[in-house]
């Protein structure tokens, strides 16, 4: 089976000499939910721009389900839908018209487009706004409108560039649910995001890009398995005057009723509880403080900055 996306030795140097991508290679399998992570300016949006022909590459090759985006651009474009980071629709047009026009650009007859537009506007909770000027929509509604627009030609590969940026938590969760459903129905999804929790929750595989290079390309599970230690927050029943000391478990008294402890992967949490219990400290609840993926992300980007080698 052809990969949903195959990038080979892709490079991009902008006018002025800035090298945004340095010979990156990447493969995304059909049906995957793939995260492309990286700090600002790392090359994520440039990569997406090249995939959907908004950015001209300097070198390399990009194929979508086996169709070269240069040689077979018509077929390749029929297979990909893109949700960009910035709002890029006509703010004076109505959402329904925006969707029908987009379908028209892909050669979809108007009667089919009208039915499909209603379906996606309803699914994304925008049907009651279908006839208002799109400039009057809220930020979250505009993002959903762009998702609906990208789906109008029912692409097999959906690329989303920070789709939940600036969206409130409730709406973000509902968008996640919608994207999971789209993915479950067979659409391959590539997502860039700054919310690492989002990538951890949604995606199966991940590539981390930094300074135009892929510094990691693996599954989320394998990535998380690389974590050596985690920071836990313990809520305790009785307030403490001073921080207890336990060998090999660095503790910090954050508040009289709150402790933080760093636990290495090889260490036993049971043993920690036994010692605390022995000292008369009763733990009411425990939670992981840091976002695990976030921690890894910073580690990898930091390593890249210091020039260590990676796969």
């Amino acid at each position: 089976m052809q990969p949903a996306l195959a990038i080979e030795q892709l490079s991009k140097t902008y006018e002025g000499g800035f090298q945004a991508l340095k010979d990156i290679s990447l493969t995304v399998q059909p049906g995957d939910f793939f995260a492309l992570l990286g700090p600002n300016g790392a090359g994520k949006s440039t990569t997406i721009g090249i995939i959907c022909s908004l950015v001209l590459k300097t070198g390399g090759k990009v194929s979508i389900f086996g169709h070269d985006v240069d040689k077979d651009f018509s077929q390749a474009k029929q297979l990909v839908g893109v949700v960009p980071q910035e709002f890029n629709f006509n703010q004076f047009e109505k959402p329904l018209d925006i969707l029908i026009h987009q379908a028209g650009y892909f050669g979809i007859p108007r009667d089919v487009a009208i039915v499909r537009a209603e379906k996606y506007l309803r699914q994304l909770g925008l049907w009651d706004k279908s006839h208002v000027p799109s400039r009057t929509l809220s930020g979250g509604m505009k993002r959903r409108l762009m998702i609906a627009r990208a789906l109008m030609h029912e692409p097999k590969l959906l690329v989303l560039d920070e789709p939940t940026a600036g969206v409130d938590i409730e709406l973000r969760r509902s968008m996640w649910e919608f994207l999971r459903e789209i993915n479950a129905s067979g659409t391959t999804i590539i997502l860039t995001t700054h919310y690492l929790e989002e990538a951890e929750s949604l995606c199966r595989n991940v590539a981390i890009i930094d300074h135009g290079k892929i510094v990691k390309n693996t599954s989320i599970r394998e990535l998380l398995a690389q974590l050596n230690k985690e920071l836990f927050v313990l809520d305790i029943r009785e307030p403490l005057a001073e921080c207890p000391e336990i060998e090999s478990y660095p503790l910090t008294l954050v508040e009289p009723n709150t402790l933080e402890v760093e636990v290495e992967k090889s260490q036993s949490i049971n043993h920690l509880f036994e010692v605390l219990s022995g000292q008369g400290i009763e733990v009411l609840s425990m939670r992981n403080k840091t976002n695990r993926l976030e921690e890894l992300f910073f580690t990898m980007v930091e390593k890249n900055l210091t020039g260590e080698s990676h796969d």
Partner: peptide, 18 residues
């Protein structure tokens, strides 16, 4: 130019329209 300014020209550029 309005389409360029609002960037909705991208709707056409990402499509297969010659």
């Amino acid at each position: 130019f309005g389409s360029k300014f609002q960037r909705n020209i991208e709707e056409l550029l990402v499509s297969p329209v010659p």
